[in-house]
C-alpha cells in the first residue's frame, strides 16, 4: 500500500528568491480520486506560491466542506489553515482577515460549498470586498457526497447518474463581477500554463479576487454528457487573451509594442500586461465584461482567462477604516488610550 510519497525530490530542484524550494510549499499526499482536477489546482497553487514567491508562514489557507475543501491539506503544509463547516469559509476568512490584515488569505471552496449552502456567505464577502483570493474548484457536482448535481451544473448536463440537470445554472463569475469583485478570472485544472499566472495575478490583487476553476470530477462527472468533463471543456474552451504577470520584485525585461498590450498596475506595484488581438475583449470595463461572458455563453463557449480587472477597488479594511496594524500587535497603550481619549469620543457623540 502506498500512502506515502517518497521524500526525495529532484536534485536540481531550484529555489526561489526567498531561498525556498517548491517542496517547501507542498502538503501531505492527496487522498482524492486519482485524476481529480482538484489535485491539479492544488499543484498550481503550490507552483504559484513558489513562483511569486510568498513566505509560507505568511499565508492562511481556508476552506469549507467537500473534496475541494479537503485540498488545503495537500498544499502549503507550513502555512496557517482553517477548515470550516460547509459553506462557511467566507465568514471564517472575514474574521481572520479583520484580526490580522498582514497575512495573505487564500480560500478554496467547491461549487456546492459556494453556490448552494454557502451562497449567502459568498455574495456578502464579495460585496464587502474582503482582501483575499477566493478559488472555487468547480466540478458541477457534489463530489464528496457521490456526485449530485450542483447549482453550477449546466442545464441539460448529464453526470454519471445519467439524468439531465433540469435547473438553470449559476455563473459564479458573473455574480462576482456584478457584486463588485475587482479581480475575476476563470481557469481550467487541465491548463496550468494559464492557471498558475492567473493565481499569481489574483494573489497580487488587493480586495477580493475570485477565480472559478473548472475541475473535472473523474469519478462522478466526467461522462460524455457532462459539460464539466475533460473532453467537453477542452473542446469548448476559449480565452479572453493571454497576459503576463510581472510581480513587483521582478524587473520588466520584455518590451511590448505600442497598442498590442494594456498594462494594468496592481495595488502592490505588480503589473499585468493584457495582450490584445482583434477579438480580445476589454476586461477592465465591468459592463463589457458581463456582455462578453453572456455572448460567449450564447455561442456555447466557455470563456477563461482574466474576465474582469479593476485594481482600484477598495477592500473591507479601507471601507471600514479599521486598525492599520494586526490586532495581536496592539498593546495596552493603544487599546486603552486613557480617559482623555474617551472624553473625545464621547464629545463626538453628543
Amino acid at each position: 500500500m502506498t500512502f506515502t510519497r517518497p521524500s526525495f525530490r529532484h536534485p536540481s530542484q531550484p529555489t526561489n528568491s526567498l531561498g525556498y524550494s517548491r517542496s517547501d510549499y507542498e502538503g501531505t499526499i492527496s487522498t482524492l480520486c486519482a485524476g481529480c482536477g482538484h489535485d491539479s489546482i492544488s499543484n498550481a497553487i503550490i507552483q504559484a506560491c513558489f513562483e511569486i514567491p510568498v513566505e509560507p508562514h505568511k499565508v492562511v489557507k481556508m476552506s469549507g466542506i467537500g473534496c475541494s475543501s479537503k485540498t488545503p491539506a495537500y498544499y502549503l503544509g507550513k502555512s496557517h489553515g482553517f477548515n470550516s463547516v460547509h459553506g462557511r469559509m467566507p465568514s471564517i476568512a472575514t474574521g481572520a482577515n479583520m484580526a490580522n490584515r498582514d497575512l495573505i488569505y487564500l480560500g478554496v471552496s467547491g461549487d456546492g460549498d459556494t453556490a448552494s449552502i454557502g451562497m449567502g456567505q459568498f455574495i456578502h464577502v464579495l460585496r464587502r470586498d474582503l482582501n483575499m483570493t477566493y478559488v472555487v474548484m468547480n466540478n458541477g457536482c457534489y463530489g464528496l457526497t457521490k456526485g449530485q448535481d450542483s447549482a453550477t451544473a449546466d442545464k441539460g448536463s448529464k453526470s454519471k447518474k445519467g439524468a439531465p440537470n433540469p435547473f438553470e445554472s449559476i455563473d459564479l463569475c458573473e455574480l462576482a463581477i456584478q457584486l463588485g469583485a475587482g479581480f475575476v478570472g476563470r481557469g481550467f485544472s487541465g491548463d496550468k500554463q494559464q492557471l498558475v499566472p492567473l493565481l499569481k495575478a489574483a494573489m497580487s490583487h488587493e480586495g477580493i479576487a475570485f477565480l472559478d476553476v473548472i475541475s473535472p470530477c473523474v469519478t462522478f462527472n466526467n461522462t460524455s454528457g457532462s459539460t464539466k468533463s475533460y473532453q467537453y471543456v477542452r473542446d469548448h474552451i476559449e480565452a479572453t487573451g493571454t497576459f503576463d504577470f510581472i510581480p513587483l520584485q521582478q524587473e520588466i525585461l520584455t518590451q511590448y509594442e505600442e497598442g498590442t498590450t494594456q498594462a494594468v498596475t496592481m495595488h502592490d506595484g505588480s503589473v499585468i500586461y493584457l495582450h490584445k488581438n482583434a477579438n480580445s475583449p476589454d476586461v477592465t470595463n465591468r459592463r463589457k465584461s458581463m456582455d462578453i461572458l453572456e455572448a460567449e455563453k450564447e455561442k456555447g463557449r466557455l470563456l477563461t482567462g482574466i474576465l474582469f480587472l479593476d485594481p482600484e477597488s477598495s477592500d473591507t479594511h479601507e471601507i471600514l477604516a479599521t486598525s492599520l496594524s494586526p490586532l495581536n500587535t496592539l498593546t495596552e497603550t493603544e487599546l486603552c488610550p486613557g480617559s482623555a481619549a474617551l472624553q473625545k469620543i464621547n464629545e463626538r457623540l453628543r
Binding site: 529532484h10 499526499i29 486519482a34 485524476g35 499543484n43 485544472s189 475533460y230
Partner: peptide, 15 residues
C-alpha cells in the same frame, strides 16, 4: 491518456 496532469503532480522528482 486524458491529460489530467495527475501523474505530473504526484511525481516526487518532477520527471
Amino acid at each position: 491518456c486524458i491529460e489530467c496532469d495527475a501523474c505530473v503532480d504526484i511525481c516526487p522528482v518532477t520527471c
